[in-house]
Simulated scan of single mutants.
Amino acid sequence: MLYTPPPIDPKAPPVRINLLSDTQTKPTAAMRDAMARAEVGDEQVGDDPTVNALCERVAALMGKEAAVYMPSGTMCNVTATLVHCRPGDEILAHETAHIIAREGGAHAAIGGFQVTQLKGPDGQFTPETFRKALHPRTRYQPPQTVVSVEQTANIGGGTIWKKAVLDEIVAIAKQHGLVTHMDGARLLNATVASGISPRDMTAGWDSAWIDFSKGLGAPIGGVLAGSRAFIDAVWQWKQRLGGSMRQAGICAAACIYALDHHVDRLADDHANARALARGLSQIPGVEVQEPETNLVFFKPDGAGIAGDKMVAALRQRGVTLAMMDGRIRACTHLDVNAAQIEETIGYVREIVRGA
């Protein structure tokens, strides 16, 4: 199992340091104020000015013709593949990609698609691996329709797909008639860390989206962008799946606030992740993957304590993390400060000494 949530222990102390995920962020007081003051209308009929403003802004940010506001990032992925593919089609993605590991088999259950799992270190496959997975179009094999990447690669350690690699994958895909889709769950983490704009990062990708409920700190939603014809088709699937909303401007206002105030500060999360990794790596027996963004993966096995035992011990100290793919994942975000990072390092050191 790729992800194991921490056990619910009614006797555990209150969570003081929440490193479980950047989805744990709470809307700030200023964000709540922006939500309270939002102009609203019926989003389903295009009558919510705040939703419209958000979609226009995200489309421009990524250099696409149009965009649509969705309740979740998973819904962005699912509706995108439902538009790009037909039943029996094949999607190519990394073996740890969210569309494979974390979306409940939706692409198979709803769309009848199969996903070919490409291997590669750190949650990424190489252009050559992609090329070798392609096959001639014959009546005997499923049509290969979409190649998908996850930016950043979550289970790979929050790694950033390099621009040159993305461009090469696009070129191969276009040469062979495939559509390109970017799962942008932490896309802005990648753009802030790399200094590459969202427009340049998503250039050549037929569809891409931004999640607002992770590091950007909004309570709900993602925005999917692409061509106008693609977004029109996505809207029909949004309707079919029951995702159309009414006065959604209340939530969209939080996303606009995040674009105005929470993008540049993602660099603070990256700095906190580096500080956490640096401190953990100085503890004998703790193996740490060097973070590129806001995710820190580590294993304390060499210190004589299993990962799940470490997670349980930290939870008793008011710190919550997750086991993921056999490692501990800590995720920094706007509700975690530098002092809490140092406190967490101290707890891990204390637990290791006790072991």
Score class of each variant (00 low, 15 high):
324 M>F: 05
342 E>A: 15
245 M>E: 15
224 L>W: 00
198 P>E: 11
229 A>N: 13
25 T>C: 11
348 V>Y: 04
74 T>Y: 07
279 G>F: 04
84 H>L: 15
348 V>F: 10
310 M>C: 08
228 R>W: 03
43 E>K: 01
112 G>M: 09
85 C>A: 08
23 T>D: 06
56 E>P: 02
322 A>W: 08
46 G>S: 12
36 A>G: 10
68 V>R: 03
280 L>M: 15
202 T>A: 09
133 A>Y: 03
322 A>G: 06
62 M>R: 04
251 C>D: 07
304 G>C: 08
240 R>D: 15
234 V>H: 00
250 I>S: 01
73 G>S: 11
6 P>H: 11
216 L>S: 02
198 P>K: 12
103 E>C: 13
263 V>A: 11
258 A>M: 10
95 E>F: 12
20 L>R: 00
345 I>G: 02
344 T>Q: 05
249 G>R: 02
135 H>I: 12
146 V>P: 04
209 W>N: 15
293 T>E: 05
121 P>S: 06
334 L>N: 05
100 I>K: 07
348 V>R: 02
97 A>R: 00
283 I>R: 05
89 D>G: 12
306 A>T: 13
88 G>H: 09
117 Q>W: 02
6 P>A: 14
133 A>P: 01
26 K>P: 04
27 P>T: 05
239 Q>R: 14
52 N>S: 02
38 A>Q: 05
306 A>V: 11
185 A>E: 03
60 A>G: 01
219 P>F: 10
29 A>H: 11
200 D>C: 01
169 I>E: 06
195 G>P: 09
330 A>P: 03
61 L>D: 00
234 V>P: 00
190 A>H: 01
212 F>K: 09
214 K>D: 03
74 T>K: 13
309 K>W: 09
273 A>T: 04
190 A>D: 02
137 R>L: 13
347 Y>H: 15
18 N>F: 10
268 D>E: 15
300 P>D: 08
43 E>V: 01
181 H>Q: 14
304 G>A: 11
75 M>N: 07
49 P>C: 03
95 E>Q: 15
347 Y>G: 07
129 T>S: 13
71 P>A: 14
96 T>P: 05
120 G>A: 08
333 H>E: 02
185 A>R: 05
16 R>G: 13
14 P>E: 08
168 E>G: 11
166 L>A: 12
3 Y>V: 04
